[in-house]
Write a protein that binds this DNA or RNA. Structure first.
Lengths: 238, 238
DNA sequence: TCGCGTTAATTTGTCTGATAACCTGACATA
DNA sequence: TATGTCAGGTTATCAGACAAATTAACGCGA
């Protein structure tokens, strides 16, 4: 039922190991939502370390959303359903990892375009068109060009009315943009810029028209074009 | 360029406030990857708190993947591209949030099915069939039935060969399953169980056959059926 | 001059003990 | 019953110290 919680592997800190140990102990004891953990002093005795280390370990579990602490009361197992979802990026972002990240992003962008075509509000359309307009200034740095690109996709995600799409697509686009900027900091982007603008305009038109099917197709074309632009081959079947 | 980092709002701990302050200061100073933060002693003086609080604040940033610390060397701004992606679940998982979570999951499951049909290995097929076989025991608790369901979807995600799909779909399915189990702990699931098994079998067959289009369709049918089973209406266009 | 151990200063990691802030349950009282 | 008070326990924060690791300067020999 419970998935392994990432984030405890790379670090070999004492507090990190104890956090992992503590988590295993919680699961082994079958502690569920609301169950109380032993006191810090007790845990310090059990593990044979100082209370400071125990506090750091519990703080890690708290940051993962696995436990909650209340001053004067204790530490309690948090509601697992409300635990934040975490996606670990690789330590070395090679081309393979980059392609896999793009592969994860693609279907979400396509679906977001379709949802946006269905649920867009007047305010959404204003935001999307504003983001599109930022592309019309022809001469800009690569940095601001990418920023405008991100803003367009963010506005689109917002138009889905689903905050998860906003959070996730924003985060994943941000990582991808970072990689692109780091890789090719000094590449002429003029023609690419214009092409990107055309693709964005097509997506925007489909969303304004409320045509989900066209929005999907336009987004697929945009992603395929973007992948090609950064030297990536992507199978966008269906 | 940089997205706001979630997770600092609800908690009013001193160390949490200082972590947020510290992060704002990093961004304001334009510190990029590899830049070194002031020493703990210095920060303790600056903020007028003890070193323990500073350590907890830095530990939070470290857990968010924003900084890295090396004993003897100092604390450094981490590579933003490698920062883990985090998706905050809502504090109260109402039906609306549940529907939105399902809406996020659906296109990823569909894409995963298509990717699995393309990239499945012999070992993948074995795992998927094994997960399918676990469904054949008719009499089980609702808990074990959901567990078998999760295992099937996990095996499918694994067959994509993309670890991001595994991580994300596992996590999101886990949350959804928790909600389902909590909501209807005591509901007869016999007919539903059989129906789920049929849908899984259809997906499995399409993947084994290497037919991505059929896998997509079968997964869409499965998700639509699952949504209906938990009393959710889902527009699965395209 | 260049390479290479050695050393000293700096910094994070851990330990110890203490105090403040807070929560919980028992108890007394009206 | 309802309420206020109190005592004990727990987490949050503070202060100081030592251990462990890194870094850079230094001296020395080739």
């Amino acid at each position: 039922m419970s998935a392994p919680v990432p984030g405890f592997a790379r670090n070999t800190q004492l507090s990190t190991r104890i956090a992992a140990h503590l988590l295993a102990q919680i699961e082994a004891d079958g502690l569920t939502t609301g169950a109380r953990l032993p006191t810090e002093a007790q845990l310090a005795r059990d593990f044979g370390v100082s209370r400071a280390v125990i506090r750091e370990a519990i703080a890690q579990l708290r940051n993962e959303g696995l436990v909650e602490t209340r001053q004067g009361a204790g530490a309690f197992v948090a509601d697992m359903a409300a635990r934040p979802i975490r996606l670990d990026a690789p330590q070395d972002m090679d081309s393979r990892a980059f392609q896999q990240l793009f592969q994860l992003r693609a279907p979400l962008e396509v679906e977001a375009a379709a949802l946006a075509a269905h649920h867009r509000s007047a305010a959404d359309i204003v935001r999307i068109k504003a983001a599109l307009a930022r592309f019309d200034q022809p001469e800009e740095s690569a940095d601001s060009s990418v920023a405008a690109d991100l803003e367009f996709h963010r506005a689109l995600a917002q138009a889905t009315g689903n905050p998860y799409f906003v959070q996730f697509l924003t985060a994943i686009s941000d990582r991808i943009a970072h990689v692109i900027l780091a890789a090719r900091a000094e590449t002429p982007l003029d023609a690419l810029h214009a092409q990107t603008r055309r693709e964005h305009a097509a997506i925007c038109a489909a969303i304004v028209a409320g045509d989900a099917r066209a929005a999907r197709a336009a987004m697929r074309a945009h992603l395929a074009g973007g992948a090609q632009r950064v030297g990536l081959q992507l199978d966008m079947s269906d």
